[in-house]
């Protein structure tokens, strides 16, 4: 009889804790040993003693929080390599969310649990694609866990951005995008679509783009928007954090087309309420169909849901006759 994962993997106030391995996954506060799925700040928090993650995630953590706050001892684990931690074997498998993002695969006495972290199934030229892993318990996110969220083809959305750019060649297109992952993915998709003019970056994006390039992701001609003259930005493509787009930073551009790339743009009135003229539905999270498809592919008889719209996803699992429960871990944001 293999031990059920609920006997050795427990939700705690500090986050999901692997008892026999004595480590936390994406802990919410500083802990002695942490396994980190990816570099977004709600998953990768500072101050842990030992940190285990992919080399790319560690590089992102160092760049974002500095060597010291990233952790006292950083240990890298390449995708698919096995590492024994006490009585648990840990592997990191691509999650397709952002560069370096990984699912945490844990095996303990013949029973296997997989923690997805954040993930998506759509193509992304900047990171390795998600790989489904068969398991006994699949711990999934549910950011877009409602059947109203079906992301359209990302190439089609980039096409809409380029069409608007062609329609209004004089207007600066300023696209709100999270600085880690979304920004680089947008640039790479623009390049794939044949856009090779310079892309201008808000300061918050520049460092991470430089890091992506160092890690081998080609992004083409990038320039700082902050140093550029207003006139130079006429008709240019500018990327900035979502918070800067609607505010003074975005407003000082001349007659900008304000766009935003996010799965939330699916809900019109939300997009409208945030003053967006061109909503682009491009997300780094799985949409409803992909959440359900992934759950089926893991063949897991039991699903745990960490954060997002848990209720609906649990209901859908029940309809598919799969056991499901909410872990109700709080502290993970709606950030993409």
């Amino acid at each position: 009889m293999h031990p059920h994962p609920e006997t050795w993997l427990k939700p705690t106030p500090s986050g999901l804790y692997c008892v026999p391995g004595d480590f936390y996954i994406d802990p919410l506060r500083a802990v002695p040993r942490a396994v980190i799925t990816h570099g977004h700040s709600d998953h990768a928090r500072p101050g842990h003693a030992q940190v285990l993650a992919t080399p790319e995630t560690l590089a992102i953590m160092r760049a974002r929080m500095g060597e010291e706050r990233a952790g006292s001892a950083l240990q890298s684990l390449a995708y698919h390599e096995a590492l024994k931690l006490n009585d648990v074997t840990v592997r990191l498998v691509p999650a397709g969310h952002v560069l370096g993002s990984a699912q945490v695969v844990m095996e303990h006495r013949g029973s296997r649990a997989v923690v997805s972290g954040d993930y998506k199934r759509q193509p992304d030229p900047t990171c390795a694609p998600f790989e489904p892993v068969r398991c006994d318990v699949f711990v999934t996110e549910a950011t877009f866990g409602l059947p109203v969220f079906r992301h359209p083809s990302p190439a089609g959305e980039i096409g809409r951005l380029l069409k608007s750019h062609a329609l209004f060649p004089e207007r600066t297109h300023v696209v709100g995008a999270y600085s880690l992952g979304k920004s680089q993915r947008l640039i790479a998709m623009l390049r794939e679509a044949g856009y090779d003019a310079p892309v201008y970056l808000h300061g918050a994006h520049a460092n991470l783009c430089a890091l992506y390039e160092k890690l081998g992701v080609k992004l083409g001609d990038l320039r700082p928007a902050t140093a550029a003259q207003k006139a130079q930005l006429k008709g240019a493509m500018v990327l900035a954090p979502p918070s800067a787009v609607g505010e003074r930073w975005g407003q000082r551009l001349e007659d900008p087309v304000v766009a935003q790339a996010s799965g939330w743009m699916r809900i019109r009135q939300r997009a409208k309420a945030s003053g967006i003229e061109l909503p682009l539905i491009i997300s780094d999270h799985a949409d409803w169909d992909d959440l359900l498809a992934t759950i089926k592919e893991t063949q897991a008889p039991e699903i745990w849901v960490t954060h997002g719209a848990e209720e609906a996803l649990i209901r859908a699992c029940t309809l598919m006759q799969i056991r499901a429960r909410a872990l109700s871990l709080i502290g993970y944001g709606e950030e993409e």
Binding site: L146, P147, V148, I267, A309, E311, A312, R315, L319
Partner: peptide, 12 residues
């Protein structure tokens, strides 16, 4: 499914 519809309607 009506439950999924209600949850979605409540959100949208």
């Amino acid at each position: 499914d009506s439950e999924l519809f209600d949850l979605s309607y409540d959100f949208v």
